[in-house]
Design a protein around this nucleic acid. Structure first.
Ligand SMILES: [Mn+2]
Ligand SMILES: [Mn+2]
Ligand SMILES: [Zn+2]
Ligand SMILES: [Zn+2]
Lengths: 137, 137
DNA sequence: TTATAAAATTATAATTATTCCAATTATGGA
DNA sequence: TCCATAATTGGAATAATTATAATTTTATAA
């Protein structure tokens, strides 16, 4: 809680009650939630919370560089509190989005073919470990 | 034209007039078009064409593995007739989506952390060569 | 503490991308 | 040609997201 407030302040975001709660959830559940998942979870604690607030808040978080927005699923945006460089696997079976920690030879900032690259996102699709284990049963 | 028909047949897609025209456009314009761009372009030739047809068609193309669907822009899907493995740069300035040909150590099929990887998409964000050159003027 | 201005939240409307569906039209083979 | 099937079409439905305007909360100064 105190910790979360410090993080918000560090990123120049006024730590309002709902902003704190939203960031807390993103921190606790590292499952790359979408707006509806955040909303369903938060509604339990704050029944009056509005989806507009969640949209506003995650947009602000992304804007300020506090969380990353993933577009691995075509339907809706996912949010990731872990902003250290890593990639993601979308499991075709269970739909979960799982961190993939592979060393990438391309660093965050570089030049390729004369273009200036500032951000890299690796999106993988396949079958996750857990689903594979069920398959063999 | 004949060529396009052969490709459709090879992928087990009945070569109807609109399907041929849609694939022709994706072949001619390699700019990773979205449905609206395809629609605007095609409307000139086929004023009666429906967006539903374009959605149906590109979905079928993706389903059959004839084109790739890119989710680099969060707003809408982009379609790429070039299915050879390559990555993409979204220019933050002009919005163009540009092919990035870098060697990736991760091949199409592999195992990572026990997960089975079947597809890899590298999405880069930055400033394209052309926009950089304008910047220095 | 109270007043007040600014900021945040909320409910709702609007927008946009996409899918669904039912009616119409085109197509390929008997 | 006739018919069954497939493809196309327009419009309605759905879903994600943004915009807007009213309300509530917060920060701060009198
Ligand atoms: Mn992650
Ligand atoms: Mn491409
Ligand atoms: Zn899985
Ligand atoms: Zn550019």
């Amino acid at each position: 809680m105190e910790n979360i407030i410090k993080i918000l302040q560090k990123y120049n975001i006024q730590p309002s009650y709902q902003r704190i709660k939203i960031l807390e959830i993103l921190d606790k559940k590292r499952e790359h939630m979408n707006v509806n998942m955040i909303y369903d979870e938060l509604s339990k604690e704050i029944p009056t919370i509005s989806k507009a607030t969640i949209y506003n808040t995650v947009n602000a978080f992304v804007e300020k560089g506090l969380v990353n927005c993933l577009t691995i699923t075509p339907e809706e945006a996912r949010y990731d509190f872990d902003i250290t460089p890593h990639h993601h696997l979308l499991c075709k079976k269970c739909g979960k989005i799982i961190d993939v920690h592979v060393k990438c030879p391309y660093t965050e900032s570089m030049e390729i073919d004369g273009h200036r690259i500032e951000e890299i996102r690796g999106y993988f699709k396949g079958i996750c470990k857990e689903c594979l284990s069920h398959e063999t049963l």
